[in-house]
Design a protein around this nucleic acid. Structure first.
Lengths: 163, 163
DNA sequence: ACGAAAAGTTAGGTGCAGCTAAATTACTTC
DNA sequence: GAAGTAATTTAGCTGCACCTAACTTTTCGT
C-alpha cells in the first residue's frame, strides 16, 4: 500500500487545481493544457498524473483525457476555495493588484490552516458588509498605504492616524 | 562563479533566520542549536552551512562557531522583519493563537512580496491605532468568527452583520 | 487515407533538501 | 592526561519535482 494518506505536496495540489479549472473552462483537461497553465513541460505532467492516479485522485490512461475522481474533485474544490478566499482578501481588503494577489494566493493556498482561512474570510466579509467600519477602513487604509493620493479628510474622528 | 544571484530557497532562508535569532539569544550559533531549532539532523545543517558559506552569507569553518556575514545579517533581518510583521497581523488583527500564527508566518515569510507585506503592516497599524474602527472591527470579528461567545450587541450601528 | 505536425510518453538526468551510519573532532571530568 | 561522551562532519542514499532527448501515438489537412 502506497500511502493512501491524503497528504499532497504543494505541487500535486497545483496539478489538481489546474485540472479542475481547465475542466470547468473547456470541458476536459488534456496534458498540454495542464502544462501550459502550470508552466511546466509535458513530461512533468505525465509524471504528476501517474502519481495522482496512484492516489486515486485522477482518472488517467495514456493518451486519454484527464478527469478527476470524486475524491480528487473534492480536494480540488477545497484548494480552489482557499485560493478564492485569499484572492478576495488581497484584492478587496488589502487592495493588491489582481495579478500579484493571484500569485501570492497561489503560494499560500497550500499551507494555510483552515482555521486561519476562516479568519481571512470573516475579515473580508466584514469589510465588505459593514458600510461604516468597512468604508472607514478602506479609505484610511488607502490613505495610509498610499500617501500620494491621501486627502487629509478624517473619516474616523477618534482615529490617531488622522494627524 | 557559482550564482552570486541572491535568490535563496525557503530552506536556506530558514537557516539564516535561525542563525540570526540564536545569535541574538545566546551570543553564538552552534550547529546543534540550529538543528534543534529547525528540527533537522545535524548533518543537514552542515550541508546548509556550506551552501550559505559559498554564497558568502555565513562565516563557516569546520567545528567552529557560526556567524553571519554583513550580507547574511542584512538578509536575515529582512526575513525576521517579514516574520514579525506577519505574526503581528495574525495575532493582533486576525486573533490567531500564537503558535499557529507563528507557524504560518514561518511559511509565508519566504514568498510574500514586499508590496504585499507593506499592506499587511499598514493594516495592522491601522487596526491597532484607530480606537474607533479598530475596536469595532475586532469585536465584530470575534463575534463573527466565534458565535459561541457572541453577544448580540451592535457595536457598529450601520452594520448589516448585526442581525 | 496518408503523411506531417502536434501531443503524449518514456528513459534517464539534475538539483535540492533531507536522511542514516560511520568517522572524526572537541569537550569533560576524573 | 586519558577516556568517555557529545558535537560535528563525511559519505552515500532517498524522494521529489523538474528537465531534455528520443520515441510513440494521435490528430489534422489536403
Amino acid at each position: 500500500m502506497s500511502k493512501s494518506k491524503t497528504e499532497l505536496s504543494a505541487s500535486l495540489e497545483d496539478y489538481l487545481e489546474a485540472i479542475f479549472l481547465i475542466a470547468e473552462e473547456k470541458g476536459a483537461a488534456r496534458p498540454k493544457d495542464i502544462a501550459d497553465r502550470l508552466d511546466v513541460r509535458a513530461a512533468s505532467v505525465t509524471g504528476a498524473l501517474k502519481t495522482l492516479a496512484e492516489k486515486a485522485l485522477v482518472n488517467y490512461a495514456p493518451y486519454d483525457i484527464v478527469t478527476l475522481t470524486a475524491t480528487g474533485k473534492r480536494i480540488a474544490k477545497e484548494i480552489v476555495r482557499k485560493h478564492s478566499a485569499l484572492l478576495r482578501f488581497f484584492s478587496n481588503v488589502l487592495d493588491i493588484p489582481r495579478k500579484e494577489a493571484d500569485e501570492f494566493a497561489c503560494k499560500m493556498e497550500h499551507s494555510i490552516p483552515d482555521h486561519v482561512l476562516e479568519r481571512f474570510i470573516g475579515f473580508a466579509e466584514f469589510v465588505e458588509k459593514c458600510p461604516n467600519s468597512g468604508a472607514i477602513w478602506q479609505n484610511k487604509a488607502k490613505g495610509y498605504f498610499c500617501k500620494a493620493q491621501g486627502s487629509n479628510q478624517t473619516l474616523c474622528d477618534q482615529c490617531s492616524l488622522s494627524e
